[in-house]
Write a protein that binds this DNA or RNA. Structure first.
Length: 573
RNA sequence: CCGCCCAUAGCUCAAUUGGAUAGAGCAUCCGCCUUCUAAGCGGAAGGUUCCAGGUUCGAGCCCUGGUGGGCGGACCA
């Protein structure tokens, strides 16, 4: 049950009964301060402006028609026309035993495009945000019951593959195994690049291989397939370590659209959208024109006949609409590609590849910066390989766990360190507003203080520890909640906001609001933990049961929330 | 030249999308462990929200003009 939704219905009815036009919304919001109640309805002021009346009098008229019996303990008009709602403790307590309804009203098929690394190189830290944020949205939408189709639009095609397969051919010629030669894709790429620049004969062969590959030559095709197989396996291993839900069946690489690229261009030309310009086929978009009236150009076919990523993005768009039957398509791609996405979307609409009913959404994100405020790099200035990065996170976490804890044995420490290290990385990324750049700092995210994953994991283990001590199973424990202390009320109210937060994330795709919520929940719980003893001798049995229930619900909510972020919890740490 | 994004406490970040006295965490200072995990809790201090105008009951948020920074803009992706 969503309290906000309930209040919204009641207020809308009251406003209508008070003669307020139906376009005016109650505009409910959480109250900023305790003295302003739990929720506040701010709609009276906007409505009064529209109706040219006194806002406080109008607020009173709304209250006269408002039925919140058994829900609100107190209602009051404040300031220029705010309506403050103090929920009753009994209502909060009884709401906690209502079954949670996490399914969204209208179920959709949602395509989520995320991660999409270039297979020519190894995955690096630049792939972290798309992978982690996209995965969270996929999980959130699945949690709400939508049909989620993950699409990993991997870059497995393009000119650099000629160079790579020529290099691979030489290694294999010397009797080396493909897996061994490609053990370090980054090194391999650098090697072949150096080779390409230094050896003109090799460079000519590489260029020839691009053409042969694209025309379907079997030898080149085999080499290419060997390379792709190893590279894809590398990415899948990273996903596994990151606890990200991308699998082989979600790979829908660029090359899979090859056969459709010519059709896409032909369709655009036939419709008069793509025209020839300097030998290339270009779509000129007036809707993206600048102040001077110059339209924005998007090349869909090069003068030499080759296709570009705009072409395969359009082919992918069509596939997602026609074959995957998407109602909504989400792209988690770097903010630097905003113009490209606008062009693809605009063209897709104009060409009728995408009907108006399908929502196209680019959800961009900022860059991960180092402590110096510049893009995150190694000490020598190179890109940081994701594989190395994850190893370092787990090592750092292990060192911290060994410093703090003496109870866990070696194998337990390994497991806990992995969950903490990986969780910390993901949370550091997810807890910052998606669209902003963010400064990455090992110590801050591993400090176990403040808005971090370890703090939330710690809150969870504290709760589980109580149940261990009481010898009760929290997962099946169920009893009525009775609220007497202010910390209990605050905790109960926070617990009841979970679904509202999820609704918002499913709509606007900003996971940091879930992080903020979970941090608040954990903070509120910690305060409850300090002030409201559960298992102590002088706690009456009924109070103890009620508090155990609050503990169980908090643990379940933390675990659920963290799971939606792809972060694991543990019994002890 | 054109376009997009950003600027909030010493530092890292919020602010329910136009709501009340701009909030957290680090760092600093003061308290709290023979008591369910102190990786914790309570408190203090810290602000001309880059600048100048404008819109209105109300602006960190919207509009205009600046300053400073990041990123894009036909044949890479």
């Amino acid at each position: 049950m969503r309290i906000k939704e309930l209040l919204n219905q009641r207020f809308s009815a009251a406003m209508q009964a008070a003669g307020i036009p139906s376009e005016c919304s109650p505009t409910l919001a959480l109250s900023g301060k305790p003295q302003f109640g739990d929720y506040q309805a701010n709609g009276a002021m906007g409505a009064a402006k529209r109706m040219q009346t006194n806002p406080r009098e109008l607020a009173q008229k709304i209250l006269d028609n408002l039925d919140l019996d058994g829900i609100a303990a107190k209602l009051e008009i404040a300031g220029p026309g705010f309506i403050n709602i103090h929920l009753s403790s009994e209502f909060l307590a009884s709401s906690l035993s209502d079954k949670i309804t996490n399914t969204a009203a209208n179920q959709q098929t949602v395509v989520v495009d995320y991660s999409s690394p270039n297979l020519a190189k190894e995955m690096h830290v630049g792939h972290l945000r798309t992978t982690i944020i996209g995965d969270t949205l996929a999980r959130v939408l699945e949690y709400q019951g939508h049909k989620v189709v993950r699409q990993n639009h991997m870059g497995d095609w393009g000119t650099q593959f000629g160079m790579l397969i020529a290099e691979l051919e030489e290694h294999l010629g010397e009797g080396e195994q493909a897996e061994l030669a490609l053990n370090d894709l980054e090194v391999f790429y650098q090697q072949s690049k150096k080779h390409f620049d230094a050896d003109t004969e090799f460079a000519d062969r590489a260029r020839a291989y691009v053409v042969k590959l694209q025309s379907g030559d079997q030898h080149c095709r085999d080499l290419w397939q060997k390379f792709i197989t190893v590279s894809v396996a590398h990415s899948l291993e990273i996903y596994h370590q990151l606890n990200v839900g991308l699998r082989e069946q979600h790979v829908k690489a660029e090359s899979s659209y090859n056969d459709d690229l010519e059709n896409v261009v032909n369709d655009l030309v036939t419709q008069g959208l793509a025209v020839e310009s300097d030998g290339a086929k270009v779509v000129f978009l007036d809707e993206l024109a600048d102040k001077n009236g110059d339209p924005s150009p998007m090349i869909v076919q090069k003068s030499g006949g080759g296709f570009l990523y705009a072409t395969s993005d359009l082919a992918a768009l069509r596939h997602r609409v026609n074959n995957l039957h998407a109602d909504r398509i989400l792209y988690f791609i770097d903010a630097r590609q905003s113009l490209h996405m606008k062009q693809v979307f605009a063209t897709g609409r104009k060409a009728n590849f995408v009907p108006p009913s399908v929502s196209l959404e680019h959800h961009p994100f900022g860059t991960m910066m180092g402590p110096d405020g510049r893009p995150f790099k190694t000490r020598t200035g190179g890109t940081v390989k994701l594989a190395d990065f994850l190893v370092e996170a787990v090592e750092r976490a292990e060192r911290l766990v060994r410093e703090k804890n003496t109870e866990l044995d070696d194998s337990e420490i390994k497991v806990v360190a992995r969950k903490i290290g990986i969780g910390a990385i993901k949370y550091a990324d997810l807890s910052i507003t998606r669209t902003n750049d963010y400064i990455f700092n090992w110590d801050a995210m591993m400090s176990f203080e403040g808005n971090t994953a370890p703090y939330l994991q710690y809150a969870y283990t504290r709760i589980r520890s109580i149940f261990r001590k009481a010898n009760i199973d929290p997962d099946t424990f169920s009893t009525a909640v009775e609220i007497t202390q202010v910390q209990e009320k605050t905790l109960a109210f926070k617990l009841l906001q979970f679904e509202e937060v999820i609704d918002q994330i499913a709509a606007d795709c900003y996971p940091h609001t879930l992080c903020a919520y979970l941090y608040e929940l954990a903070s509120v719980y910690m305060s409850f933990y300090e002030h409201c003893p559960v298992l102590k001798d002088d706690v009456p049995a009924k109070t103890q049961q009620s508090r155990l229930q609050l503990c169980a619900l908090t643990a379940a909510t933390l675990a659920q929330g963290l799971d939606l972020l792809g972060i694991e919890v543990m019994e002890k740490m």
